[in-house]
Structure formats: C-alpha cells, structure tokens
Simulated scan of single mutants.
Amino acid sequence: MEQLLTSSADAAENPKFLKKKPLIISGPCSAETEEQLIATCTQLAATGKVDMLRAGIWKPRTKPGLFEGIGTKGLPWLQKAKQLTGLPTTVEVATPKHVEDALAFDVDVLWIGARTTVNPFSVQALADALRGVDIPVFIKNPVHPDLELWMGAVERLQKTGNQKIGLIHRGFASYGNTEFRNAPMWHLPIEMKRRLPELPIICDPSHICGNRTGLAAVAQKSIDLDFDGLMLESHIDPDNAWSDAKQQVTPQRLAELLDGLTWRHETTDQQEFLNKLSQLRAQINQLDEEILHLLGRRMQVAESIGSYKKENNITILQASRWNEILEHGIQQGQRLGLTEDFILKYFDAVHLESINRQNRVMNQK
C-alpha cells in the first residue's frame, strides 16, 4: 500500500488524502501505557498493511467508573509512534479542548464518535473549534439509526469550509440485538453513499461485531458494498486490554485477516462484462416494473376491502388473517429461495401500506 501521509502539513496540502482506497486504519481501542501503544503501533507498521494509526485517548463510556481513557498525556505517545513508524495518526474528539490538544500534538486526522454525532450541540461546538483548520475529519454514524443526524453533522462541518470529510459506519444500537454489538443496518450507510457519493466511507467492523469472530465477514461485506476502507482495533495483548478486549486482535492476526479479504472494483472497462451486466440490469428493470404494477393492483384490492369493511362496520386489522398471510408467505418464500427475514420485512411494508389505504377509505367523510 502506498504511503499515506507523513505529517499534518502534508495532509493540509493534499486534497486527495481521503481518496486513498483502500484506507486501513488500526490501533488499540485505548492508549493505556506508552509501552503498549508504541509496541502495538510499531508491530502494525511492520505488517505493511496499515495506512494510519488510531488510539482512543478520551473514551466516552456508557457508565461511570469504567476506563475513560488516559487523556491528553497519551498524545505524546501517539506522536512518538508517528515519528517511529512514519504513519499518520487519528483520534476521536468530543470537545473543543480535545481538538486543541490533538492539533497541538500533530494529529493528522480527527474523527467524531457515535455518541457525539447524536448531539447537534456537541457537533456544532466541534465545528466551531475547527473553523479555519484544514484537517480531515471523519464522522461516525450516530448511536441510533437516524440518518438526518448523520447528515446534519456532515453539513455542520461543511459549513466551516472543510471539504475533507469522511464517514465511518460503526453500526447502530438496537434493542434485543444479539448477533452484533451494533447492528450494521447496511441499508443506512448505503443511503448515505447515495446522498453523498463524493464522501469516502469506511467500515468499523470492531464496533459492529463486538467480538473477533465476525470481523472478517463484516469487513468483506463492506468491501463488497464498495466501502473505501476499514477501521479495525488492534492490541499487542487483546485479552488484557483495558477496554473492548473481545473485539481487538493482535497486529499479526490483523495482517492475516486483511490478507484473507477480497478487494473488488466498482466497475471495469471489459466490454464483455459491461454488455452482460447491461442485459441483466435490463431484466431487473423489467421485473421491478412488473412488481410495482402488481403492488398497485394489490393496493386497489385493499381499498375495495376497506370499502366493504366500512359498509359492514368491521375493523381494519384482522389478526388471524394477518397470521395466515405471513405463514403462507414464509412457506412460499422458502420454496423460492427467499429468506424468512426478507419475507417478514416485505410483508410488514405491504401490510402497513394496505392498512393506511384502508384507513383512508374507511374514514372518508
């Protein structure tokens, strides 16, 4: 991988900095001691796989009493790691004082964490502190699945004149979720890519998974979705890390994980591929049109049912009928190779639209 940066001055002079692809960021969840941080960073640099070093200096934690970061005294350690490895550095900032201290110790890139993105007042305070400062800033998605908050954070930074903005997808908190620490909800970062195609977006599998076992699968999926890079946590002794021990890997294991990934391209100039893809997409377009026509006809029938229910003073929701539709849909979908999760989401959307149509019909004056 090409050398990314060697100094903050380079970052300021290089508007293509965030265009580097793939961009690999790694380092410990938290800077704990100078020895731990230097050892981790030098081992990461030795792999030749990492473009930028990260370390948590200030750690926003859910509950008091947990390790909340070593604080500003860890910044000289990170600065030393940069000098030893030649790799640029990045840290999370949550207050204007964090920004001031990070810049004072030559940090190359800042990122705004999920717990900060969720608060417009905090984001605005950071934007004000960064006004006139020419430094790249990544913005993590908010803790909860709210795209407008994520968009709002981007706009606040852009209004300061900063054009070196990137996004980090680290998953979203969801009640009852067990598979992931933070559910990826891939449709949300995909929508951000659609809205802001000019901004690079990287994936943070460490915080999505909350464990080591799922890192490769989540990383590969993000690559397949044309993400621009990865942020992965690494520690020389993960099991004894002071924070998020379960999701960190050793530098050696990180290199193995990265070697196992398949990096894909968004497109190609091979004419045979382009012709075949065009044919298949034409089929998709035709099928989508047919599906929409069928859905339109279905909703017309739903409105007729609403009229009939109104005439007979019958409620819109019929629980037994809804269960019957779901059971039949799941069985039919499985025979067609469709997952139960997809069928449930599809019928939930169709059912809600049907209810809304019937409600309008039944309550017309």
Rank of each mutant, 00 (worst) to 15 (best):
S30G: 09
E35F: 05
P120G: 05
T95L: 00
T95F: 00
G56S: 04
K82T: 08
K82H: 13
A46R: 01
A94I: 15
K97T: 09
A94S: 15
A102W: 03
W111F: 15
D108C: 15
T40N: 04
Q36I: 10
A81D: 06
V93C: 04
V109C: 11
T72V: 14
R54M: 00
E92F: 01
F121A: 15
I57F: 11
V109D: 04
G27R: 09
D101N: 12
I57V: 15
F67R: 02
K63E: 15
A39Y: 13
R54V: 05
T40W: 06
A81E: 01
V99T: 08
E100W: 11
D108F: 06
T116E: 02
V99L: 00
G56R: 00
L53F: 00
G48L: 08
Q36N: 14
L78P: 09
Q43Y: 04
D106S: 09
T42K: 10
G86F: 02
G74F: 11
L103S: 12
T72D: 13
L37V: 06
A55I: 10
R115N: 06
P88F: 00
Q43M: 10
G86P: 04
K63W: 12
T89E: 00
P88Y: 01
P88K: 02
T85H: 13
T62A: 14
C41K: 08
V109L: 11
T89A: 02
S26H: 05
Q43K: 13
K63L: 13
T62Q: 07
S26N: 06
K97V: 07
I70F: 05
P96T: 03
A114S: 12
P76Q: 01
G48D: 02
L110V: 10
L78F: 08
K73A: 14
A81R: 00
V93G: 04
D106V: 01
A46H: 05
M52Y: 09
A104Y: 11
K97C: 03
P120E: 08
I38M: 08
L44R: 01
F105T: 12
C41I: 13
I38S: 02
M52I: 10
V107A: 01
E92D: 02
L75Q: 00
W58T: 02
G69C: 08
V50Q: 06
A31G: 12
T117A: 07
K73M: 14
P60T: 05
V99I: 00
K49F: 06
D106P: 07
V50H: 10
G71V: 11
G113E: 14
V107Y: 03
A104W: 11
D108L: 10
I38L: 15
K82V: 03
C41W: 07
T42H: 06
E35M: 07
T42V: 15
T85N: 12
Q79K: 15
R54P: 03
F67T: 03
T85F: 12
L75Y: 03
S26Y: 09
G56L: 06
A31I: 06
P120Q: 07
V107C: 05
A94C: 14
Q79C: 13
A81T: 01
Q36S: 12
R115S: 05
S30I: 06
T47F: 11
C29S: 14
P88V: 02
T95R: 04
D101Q: 15
I38K: 01
T95D: 04
A55W: 08
F67G: 03
